[in-house]
Write a protein that binds this DNA or RNA. Structure first.
Lengths: 217, 217, 217, 217
DNA sequence: AATGAATGAGCATTCATTCAT
DNA sequence: TATGAATGAATGCTCATTCAT
């Protein structure tokens, strides 16, 4: 972790303690949002003093940015793992969808945080942190699509960048739909009440949707 | 307007005054978020007293919900307008994309508000208001797809509900990408820096994407 | 009172309440200094809420500046009163010395505040308020000395401005010596332990000192 | 140095280190005042740990008192040096004035500290330290005046103690006027804007003032 | 109904001081 | 002895909400 939003002291404390602070802060920020999150409460729940929090982070905002930083790194790690497979585009896409289903359930708070951070306030600061991740995925998706194009799997008049964008939009909202209350309700309305017990249906239909988009003659 | 989140008094004041309050509140909530929005400041900018605000709305939350209510109604009106055309599915979709491009630019604040309201806090209350709209669009999209299916335009193994969901996911993120800073930056990264000067490119590619998804044999 | 450091609201409240706030604030600031003074405590002692304090004054500093403003005005009023007499320079000086003795005892806190405000921090802001008073007295003293010079009472090679400065220095430290603990102890050391029961001695000796300075052949 | 306000440990460290701590502390206290001065910051600037500061001084107040102690000793040394001359009273006074001009410019921080310490808070503790110095100067001035009186230079009805007091008042405010922002501005107002480039004028006029006070027939 | 002054709980942040290493 | 991380009480300030006029 580069020391951009936290002090050197934070780097020196035990990994266990550091993780505890991050976990507590993630929970607080994702449940209550930036403004409502209470620094004193985070300190207490993390079992440290407020003073220490302010030894580790210059202010509440930097604590938030550190949390975002960490969240983004975690999300990107998940992605990298998936992307390393040597499969073809279609298989890769299916893997990603299944990963979104399983991993989002393990990282509900991180995903809520991701939605939270797209909100207006502080978006410029947050963007600096997130842009790296978005850049990575954008590049990856586009290059995969280009490869498929060169292999004749995808039509020539497809703009790889635009299609990468649409693809990630589908993934992003799927993530939110597995984590954020609002989007969960929305998905139940759109598909059906018990959709969260039907992961295969989602995979099957979304694959069909994407397959058509990419591989129709 | 049903008096659910506001008092009868609010209904009785002049339409002009009512609109002024809503406009100011929309601006404040969309720019600063719920927590940071300042009730006293809204009152001042609207040219009324704080006391009056609290005569019209039981508390800040109800003011917010009223604003959401109004925003959702406006957004739904836009949608209805588009949906009333008698075109086929493909033409309808193109119209919607073009409407998102033009109307979102006129309603940046409402769209930001929409993103804001998907955030965790208060999401259950907010959902009550938004669910009606989401229900409407979900139903509309699904029924259009079913019609197309019956007409043989769309394959039989497509789940109209799931496809309606994916379709609206693409629309929703497109909306956000035309209004919210974070998503704007993201779109520029994914497609290209000057994408906001290239509406036709977006229409063309997104149509290609969706057409394939729906109409590939 | 010009509304420079306080809000219009402060001007509108009852004179009694306003005075109470000022009195309490003067006591707090003069006893504990700017940093140690507690705004919450001032509010409580004045029988109002913290919120009100911050409706009246933008921040602690402005409350302090208002208090200084008030203190300076009060001190200047005392001076003006003395200066209005039609006596000759010598009589005037004696009157001033006697006024310092009696009035300082009634305004111990204001005088302590005056000493406090000469301290480094905030001195530039404070100076804006105090400079008017210092200007007034400087001008008055100098013009009196000039008159006396023209009347042949004071030698020609005397610089009225410099002499006004030395004269006021003597007065200022006399004031502090009647109000501030440190200077009180110092005066007891220099003259004698029971000097504060011997006002006439001070008048007599200081008059002798000044008379010689001004009126020696 | 007597170990009154600092521990034995402070005495044992190298003179260089001790001086560094004192220098840094003087700068901090004179620039920011007692309350605003930051112990952690002093430690850091002095290149030692906070822990050490608290090994050397029981608390912030004792550090302050040690600094005052040191400042007072330095100021007294300056005075003693001046007083050792064998000149007559008038020459001595001129020497003092010139010394105030030159030495105050070299010791601006100590002089500011002197003004700071006359402030109410802690004045009783501070007085214990300063009283020795004030006693010394008071005694010296008074004895010189008595000598002059016995030599017939000064009139019999002059109270040497009172005159010593007035004399030192003139000197003290002159010191402050060469070091403290507030008093510097005040002097510019009273005499003239460029007075700090006119040391001779000050000497000449103040000598005239004092000479008259003491030596008028 | 409308006003806007008043309220006070709540929170971010600071910093003198302690103590384990 | 020296270190510097840790502590937590203290305080300036905000803002949703109330209520007398």
């Amino acid at each position: 972790m580069k020391a951009e939003y936290f002090t050197d002291t934070f780097n020196k404390i035990s990994g266990e303690k550091r993780q505890k602070i991050l976990d507590v802060a993630i929970a607080e920020f994702s449940e209550r949002g930036f403004e409502s999150a209470n620094v004193n409460s985070i300190a207490q729940k993390a079992g440290i003093s407020v003073g220490s929090i302010y030894k580790y982070f210059e202010n509440k905002e930097n604590l938030f940015l550190t949390v975002i930083h960490f969240a983004v790194e975690t999300l990107r790690d998940v992605l990298k793992e998936i992307m390393q497979s040597e499969d073809d585009l279609e298989s890769r896409i299916e893997k990603i969808i299944r990963a979104i289903q399983s991993r989002t359930r393990d990282n509900v708070q991180l995903t809520k945080l991701y939605n939270e951070m797209t909100t207006e306030n502080r978006s410029s600061l947050v963007w600096k942190i997130a842009s790296e991740m978005e850049n990575t995925t954008a590049g990856l998706y586009a290059s995969f699509i280009k490869q498929a194009q060169e292999a004749g799997e995808v039509k020539d008049d497809v703009d790889p960048n635009a299609f990468a964008f649409f693809l990630d939009n589908l993934f992003l909202l799927l993530q939110f739909s597995y984590a954020c209350e609002y989007y969960k309700e929305r998905m139940k309305i759109y598909i059906r009440e018990d959709i969260f017990d039907n992961d295969d249906l989602v995979v099957e239909q979304l694959m069909k949707f994407i397959r058509g988009a990419f591989f129709s003659k």
